[in-house]
Design a protein around this nucleic acid. Structure first.
Lengths: 255, 255
DNA sequence: AACTTTATATCGCTT
DNA sequence: AAGCGATGTAAAGTT
């Protein structure tokens, strides 16, 4: 990646550099004192303040304030970004067609511009997604219960989809709902609706909620409806993949 | 805001600047070639690639790749961030206590460091939030229906809180559920549960779902349960505030 | 294109 | 700390 830094003397100089960088579809980071307006699905206004603005080659624009993980303003994929000097201000406009929305930045000072070209992409993997938990249970159903046999995956049932549809060692139908994060009342209600769909047809069905943990209220609700909870250890599951064990050791060493 | 830019010659120089900036709780933006690992609620790995890393004074850390609105990795508010040279790499570690998670960046090159101190905060307003829609209806209930009288706001009812609780011109109790975005089946079910709570007590109650639009499935469900839908025009509502009209004109002129 | 579901959701507020 | 609801949620998958 080639990185250039500009400390502009004037707004016109800043405008010229940003215009050229936009033209070349660079990855631009701007530190500036500016106001911001957004209008589209909602509407917002930010008074004069210091911001760091990032424009990516794909047209996404992100305006950060000095705190918080979330940007103050943004535009996921714009159809057009323009830069101009108006009334002695550097004005950036990012337009989006669907939904129709606009973000306007009015900069009174530009402290620095960082322009990056030809970035190395690298690759990215997410592990232990809900899908991975499901895959792990499919390949080893004993994680949930001894003697369980998976019959179907994401089976369509009246209110939606059950994550897993199985039979226990006694021949009972078992509906399994998987949550990768702590299960709340919603998850219980969802599982209940699946189980009810079977019970309504006169079929006896067990319902098991599989999650790393569950809230107290959700557990009460679960027992009330005669459903079951099965704790699953994500860390264990993650480690069960031999390929990842080495990397994990390295990470835990840090902690 | 004071902004300094460093183009480090060596990783050790980069480390020293970042360490000092972290110490001073600066707002740091780093362009670097690095690998990343995350582990906590999930787990991820990113191979060597060019990234822009932002560390804010409150400890939030955001790692951006060259495309997409979302960062590759992040940590909302960390309890500790450290920087060190290990095996000829600049290693940044961001720890979070609750939930317990860790983000590790291993940089093999640091292209540029942007360090900002004492940023001007500025102020930020969000308009046309659900709360604003509610406020507008409270101050003018005829938006929903002629002759409506608001009795209570966020009234607790068995399954939760109704947004607005009113009486129509015929004396019927009216439960109002507000959605700022297109209403889906969830919104209908929510409204239904509130209305049912009244009907269970033998009180006749109408249920009105107020939203800018509604999905087809949700509308069918609504009619099935004998509930009502009232369209509300967010733009109109937004414009009805005289203070904002001038600004809005200016913005739409841009489009 | 509309709709549904997920997310390392985040964030703010209340209990 | 846990629960609950809104978000300019965004993004991905499905109908």
């Amino acid at each position: 990646m080639d990185v250039g830094v500009v400390i502009p003397e004037t707004l016109e100089e800043a405008r010229a550099h940003i215009a050229e960088a936009l033209e070349r579809r660079s990855w631009i980071t701007i530190a500036a004192l500016c106001k911001a307006w957004y209008e589209g699905r909602g509407a917002s206004e930010a008074t004069l303040g210091d911001r760091i603005v990032m424009v990516k080659p794909d047209g996404s624009i992100i305006v950060h304030g000095h705190r918080g993980f979330k940007p103050l303003n943004w535009q996921p994929e714009t159809s057009a970004i323009t830069v101009a000097i108006e009334n002695s201000m550097l004005v950036l406009r990012a337009l989006r067609r669907t939904p129709r929305e606009i973000l306007v930045l009015e900069c009174s000072s530009v402290y620095a511009i960082l322009i990056a070209l030809n970035p190395e992409e690298g690759q990215f993997w997410m592990y232990v997604s809900e899908e991975e938990v499901r895959e792990a249970i499919i390949s080893d159903p004993s994680i949930v219960e001894e003697g369980l046999k998976i019959i179907d995956v994401e089976k369509p049932v009246e209110p939606g989809f059950v994550d897993l549809y199985a039979r226990d060692k006694n021949g009972n139908i078992v509906v399994i709902e998987i949550k990768r994060v702590k299960a709340g009342e919603d998850a219980v209600k969802q599982l209940l609706s699946y189980v009810e769909a079977f019970r309504a047809k006169g079929i006896r069905a067990r319902g098991i909620l599989v999650a790393p943990s569950i809230t107290e209220n959700a557990l009460k609700l679960l027992y009330l409806y005669n459903l079951e909870f099965k704790h699953v250890d994500l860390k264990k599951l993650y480690l069960s993949s031999a390929k990842r064990r080495a990397r994990f050791k390295q990470l835990t060493d840090y902690i």
